[in-house]
């Protein structure tokens, strides 16, 4: 799939997870190409994850997208080792989790990783501030320090003044902010997100996505993000893995997925994707390669969606100039490329 990466912070190699009594038979059937239903009927075991490998580089956002039952939730639990994989290895920040004993695993969890859960997983018997401080409490940080740190993070996620409420007194969006603050409180290098926004209303979800993007710009952590929402995957991901029936179908950047879907299964998703909204100028731009720049050309920022750039390309033979945040030109966006991507997507 992707080449081994020296700076990879998460390395997953050949991970299998089989639930049930006969993991070996089930695995053999799966390798011979049997479907999940056939295996279940024959062995009573469920193959949730089949032979998944991937690497995530430091600071990268890796999104695993799949429908319910595709095994994505089990996969993230294997990677975070909440569930022991049946086979395969998981390496996190240079340590192999699959080899680590209980104490070593706890140590890694305290220092290196944190997780945000689908249904928030907040502790209903603890105040918001004590929820956020939980990771620090487990590490033995004294009460005063951990509360200070927790309140600081509540400010970061825009919940100042809510610390003394109980989680169930907050709205869903606010609860997930608490979940995010709780994960960030321990200053992890790797963050796991298990469908964190799927329980939220669409508008709240969009806000939370935007905020996560902003936060990630600042923090530059390594994120492994699970979702069933293809648009969410396109919006957040540096790279996307599409998962079906326990295996990865395709791994690639959003543009790769949109422009060259690997098979019909992936194409089914890309067809409905609002390409012009999702893809940004930077993802289709061509390098300048020393070409002369006409000051008359329209300028857009690199994060501008195609649909915003599109009117300036239509009815003009000139490309649009793509600039970075300092308004320095970094590339050119051509009308042909945009038209090609959009028309391919519609087929």
């Amino acid at each position: 799939m992707d080449t081994p990466n020296e700076t990879a912070q998460v390395r997953v190699e050949g991970v299998w997870k089989v639930f049930g009594r006969k993991p070996r038979e089930a695995k053999e059937m799966a390798e011979a190409g049997s479907t999940r239903e056939e295996i279940q009927t024959a062995t009573g075991s469920v193959v949730a994850v089949r032979d998944v490998s991937f690497h995530v580089a430091t600071g990268e956002t890796f999104v695993v997208m799949g429908l319910s039952g595709s095994g994505k939730s089990t996969l993230i639990r294997c990677v975070s080792h909440l569930v022991a994989p049946t086979e395969g290895t998981v390496e996190l920040c240079g340590t192999e989790l699959t080899q680590a004993d209980g104490a070593k695993l706890r140590e890694l969890r305290r220092q290196k990783m944190a997780m945000v859960f689908q249904h928030f997983g907040l502790f209903p018997h603890r105040k918001v501030v004590d929820n956020v401080a939980y990771g620090l409490e487990v590490q033995g940080v004294d009460r005063h320090d951990r509360q200070d740190r927790a309140r600081e993070l509540l400010d970061t996620v825009g919940l100042e003044g809510w610390g003394d409420h109980y989680p169930q007194q907050l709205s869903g969006g606010m609860q997930q902010r608490v979940g995010l603050a709780r994960a960030l409180a321990v200053d992890p290098e790797v963050l796991f997100f298990d469908e964190p926004f799927s329980a939220l209303d669409p508008l709240i979800r969009r806000d939370m996505q935007d905020e996560l993007i902003d936060l990630q710009m600042k923090l530059q952590r390594t994120l492994v993000f699970i979702t069933h929402d293809f648009a969410e995957a396109l919006k957040l991901a540096d790279r996307i893995a599409i998962m079906n029936d326990g295996a990865f179908v395709q791994v690639g950047t959003p543009v790769e997925i949109l422009t060259s879907p690997a098979d019909d299964y992936v194409r089914a998703f890309t067809q409905d994707a609002p390409v012009a909204k999702v893809l940004q100028a930077c993802s289709l731009m061509k390098p300048l390669d020393g070409r002369a720049i006409d000051p008359e050309w329209h300028r857009v920022s690199s994060t501008t969606p195609l649909e915003v750039a599109l009117p300036h390309l239509l009815g003009s033979i000139n490309p649009v100039l793509v600039c970075d945040e300092h308004n320095t030109p970094v590339g050119l966006l051509h009308g042909d490329d945009v038209a090609r991507v959009i028309s391919e997507n519609q087929q």
Partner: peptide, 19 residues
């Protein structure tokens, strides 16, 4: 999920039980 959350913070069995 609350137990998983606790585990993910590296809580020991005893800490998860008590807290």
């Amino acid at each position: 999920v609350t137990v998983e959350a606790s585990e993910m913070f590296g809580a020991t069995e005893r800490q998860t039980l008590r807290l």
